[in-house]
Design a protein around this nucleic acid. Structure first.
Lengths: 208, 208
DNA sequence: ACACATCCATACCGGTTGGTATGTAATGTG
DNA sequence: CACATTACATACCAACCGGTATGGATGTGT
């Protein structure tokens, strides 16, 4: 599975671009910085990506999306106790995420706020990733409902939308406050919201 | 109360800057665009504001903050049924907000995501406004608790943090989806969350 | 009416931006 | 081994950026 040289170069560009975009935002991300960081030149970059926009879109598709897959989506899909798993992810996400992710914000959310209104392709690509997130949570709640863990009257579609929205909101506010502590506290409330969707019987272990 | 010419010029700059920043973000906001829009020149702008940063900070303090005051804070503070008022604001906010606010996002949230990690002064100023928002909701919940409307076991501070976070999250996600409908649906869930904080007796009129 | 500060317009500047045109070395292919 | 294509490096460019220096017009206090 040894990657060939061109693929390695491409990946180096993608990773560096991801970091630069994560720090500065897409528009403020400097091509020159990425090149300096990778030790490459414009020839290399514009050989692999036709425009800066294409580079950004590739970062979303191949870096950001894959990170979310590995951190959240896969685990949620694979679980046969989806609600329990969702609660566990929400409860422990603040420890599993890199330290600077609270300070720099969620890469997906950052780009959503910056680019959705400006670039249609960005909007579509970001919306696609967000849709997967929402769909994954939605399925988890749906399955939980079949298991009798989630109340029958819960609109799992709307609830999933809200969970993802609040999730991003928590990171966003914590980013502004520059406070991992606020992030944790905020996610605990989201945890409580999801517990509130559960049927009384299975809602054991609820604090307070 | 007629404003003098210089004040009018300053206000024109502030309003135009607010729109430009709302559309493009702060960093991408173009001084040239603002000047073209107002029909003024650099001499005028840099007479009233020493730097672009100062202009941005003034927009936060004098435009964004005041809008939130008029739309949310004042009403919440003045109400003697704070929880009811909070629920009403959440339920009707999608109709009272300008149409493009969902498409362009919340001006406060946009700047929080863009600038918090980049500029300390922005971070502080934004955090201050966000803190007022949080504090206002917090007081509303606190008063509701004294009235017996909110359950005694509710951590009103954490709940307020979550309400504001989820609120911004709803706008942010709806902005990405470019969907006022999603915004409405998402805010309905937040409405349900706040209802979930209420004591059983007063929790009348809950749907489903 | 004179002096002075406020208010704003014009012209200009160095630096940075994304993007391109061209050349060359490496690699794959017949 | 010849040839073509891929994979990069170098040099260059017009456009735009925020900011400044200068000068003139307009009040404003005395």
């Amino acid at each position: 599975m040894d990657q060939k040289q061109p693929d390695l170069t491409r990946e180096k560009l993608l990773m560096s671009a991801f970091c630069e975009i994560h720090r500065q935002g897409f528009q403020a991300a400097s091509i020159a910085n990425i090149l300096q960081d990778t030790g490459l030149t414009k020839g290399a970059l514009y050989h692999h990506f036709p425009t800066k926009q294409a580079l950004g879109l590739a970062v979303i598709e191949e870096v950001i999306k894959e990170r979310l897959e590995g951190m959240i989506f896969k685990r949620l899909r694979a679980s046969d106790k989806p609600v329990e798993t969702l609660l566990d992810i929400i409860a422990t996400i603040d420890k599993k995420v890199p330290a600077d992710f609270v300070m720099l914000g969620c890469p997906l959310n950052n780009l959503m706020q910056e680019m959705s209104a400006l670039d249609e392709l960005f909007q579509e690509q970001l919306s696609s990733v967000l849709g997967i997130w929402q769909k994954t949570v939605e399925d988890a709640l749906k399955r939980g409902q079949k298991q009798g863990v989630i109340r029958a009257d819960v609109d799992y579609k709307a609830a999933a939308l809200f969970v993802v929205s609040a999730w991003e909101g928590c990171i966003g506010v914590a980013k502004n406050m520059q406070s991992p502590k606020a992030f944790k506290l905020c996610m605990q409330q989201l945890h409580g919201y999801v517990q509130g969707l559960m049927s009384a019987k299975t809602e054991k272990g609820r604090k307070k």
